[in-house]
Amino acid sequence: MAEIALAEPAVQSKRVAALRLDRRHLLGLVLLGPSLVFLAAFTYWPVVQVLWQSVHAESRAGNVYVGLSNFAAIFGDAAFRRALSNNAIYAVGTVVPSLVLALGFALSLARSNALNVVLRSILFLPVLVPLVAAASIFLFIFLPGVGLLDYYLARLGIQGANWLGDPDIALYSIMALTVWKNAGYYMLFFLAGLQAIPPESYEAATLDGASPWQRLRYVTLPYLRPTIAFVLVIALLNVVTQVDHIFVLTKGGPSDSTNLLLFYIYQQAVEHYDAGKAAAATVVSLSFLLALSAFSLRRMDAGADMEGGRA
């Protein structure tokens, strides 16, 4: 499927379109109808609502326009700033290791022999486990003193740590869980990407006397660039949208050291009952996502141009 070009459909279907142009105009919109109804209800309308709510405060008297004071409130809130910086650390600390590991796994397991298939499956297993379920296993793994990690560290005579209770460590423990959960998923994309590299490129490189590292640097990685960009976007999306493990493991604690943006939104909305702050924080997270989509759309457009141009 890698070879599929994003060809302009109108070119292919010109003859058909010419036959029944008017009716097909209408038909196109009708066929998009069902999707558009749901997109409107659960994507566009909520965005409008959030934008509106972010400049209003809910009180017993109803909603009052408050200008940007909700934004002032969240940026004045140490917990929010902490959530933002945590999210940045979390992004770097989960995306980079996951991608490097995933690429390493894919390179090592590219050939489909029996052992590799087993290894791939093992590395892929965490993807199938609900994040909450994984978290409830890791709750025990990270348990101080009696947990899996400390139990085996103690056997080596090493004092374990308070993995989820030490504000210096907790976020990294959460990140370890995330890398464990996602690396296998990204590995698959790289495996697919590797298949698309023409064997001739390797042969040519080998004939030129390139070392394995040089082949990685000058053949494999350039071919994988679109895959890397795609995985990067997915991984960043996960960073902003997945907080299930925070729920089970830390509730954002200790001292907000594992609070992430989406969890903060949840906290403000349902625990602290502050619709204005929740909406303002959502707007912040939306603007990040929009920037991310602008980035990926540009990439997609660029990719499409490479593959034959689009309207």
Partner: peptide, 20 residues
């Protein structure tokens, strides 16, 4: 007393397993 935040289930598990 161990440092850092301790969770309720961790405390009782620790007591029941003789570690506190």
């Amino acid at each position: 007393h161990p440092a850092g935040e301790q969770k309720g289930p961790g405390v009782s598990t620790s007591f029941l397993s003789g570690q506190s």
